[in-house]
């Protein structure tokens, strides 16, 4: 009965540890909340480094990949024979449906005025395979490029795409500027 009145040594020890734990936890959370000078980092594809290898489509932990094609209109040449859209077939008709590069038919074009056609990428269909990026980069202005979409990206501690990227093109960027967009100078 005396035990219930006076705490034993063991109980005092436990209470102390608990108190320390509580204080430590509060301290840690407070410290983290105020340690704000460092920015939260997110993953992004550096379009300058990207070699269009196509691993973005398969390496991402998400299905479909968080990497998707972005089209910089201001850089686009509005080519009639767009190699982002069509395969670079040197003979025969190249602007027919059989020759479309994109495996998911995510790229569409609309006629503007002779000879210019506008290209648009349907992000919902894009799987990030980089076939169009390769075509556009090789024969065009490089206006199509891959970016990791942050409305999809799980922001893994170690990006699975970065693990396999042969050109070391997946880099960490500050969370408040999460995209590396191609923009005209000035």
């Amino acid at each position: 009965m005396a035990d219930s009145d006076k705490p034993t040594r063991r109980e005092v020890l436990r209470d102390t540890v608990r108190l320390c734990g509580l204080a430590g936890g509060a301290f840690a959370l407070g410290g983290i909340a105020t340690r704000s000078e460092a920015a939260e980092m997110v993953w992004q594809i550096d379009p300058d480094k990207c070699t269009e290898c196509g691993l973005c489509a398969s390496a991402c932990v998400l299905e479909p990949s968080a990497a998707k094609c972005v089209h910089a209109y201001a850089q686009c040449g509005y080519c009639k024979l767009c190699f982002g859209l069509f395969r670079d077939k040197r003979t025969g008709d190249t602007t027919t449906a059989e020759n479309v590069r994109c495996p998911t038919d995510a790229i569409s074009r609309t006629f503007i005025e002779d000879p210019y056609h506008q290209i648009a990428v349907d992000e919902n269909r894009c799987i990030g395979c980089a076939l169009c990026v390769k075509g556009c980069h090789q024969f065009g202005n490089g206006s199509m490029y891959l970016q990791i979409r942050h409305d999809r990206c799980a922001n893994c501690n170690q990006c699975a795409i970065a693990n396999v990227c042969p050109a070391d093109a997946v880099v960490r960027v500050p969370g408040h500027r999460p995209y590396m967009l191609k923009r005209p100078k000035g």
């Binding site: 850089q75 040449g77 202005n141 490089g142 500027r177 100078k185």
Partner: peptide
């Protein structure tokens, strides 16, 4: 990372034909 795309644009615009 921040500067690379700007540099890249300059290069690609020079390199490519259209």
């Amino acid at each position: 990372c921040l500067v690379a795309p700007l540099v890249a644009f300059g290069q690609t615009a020079d390199q490519h034909s259209q």
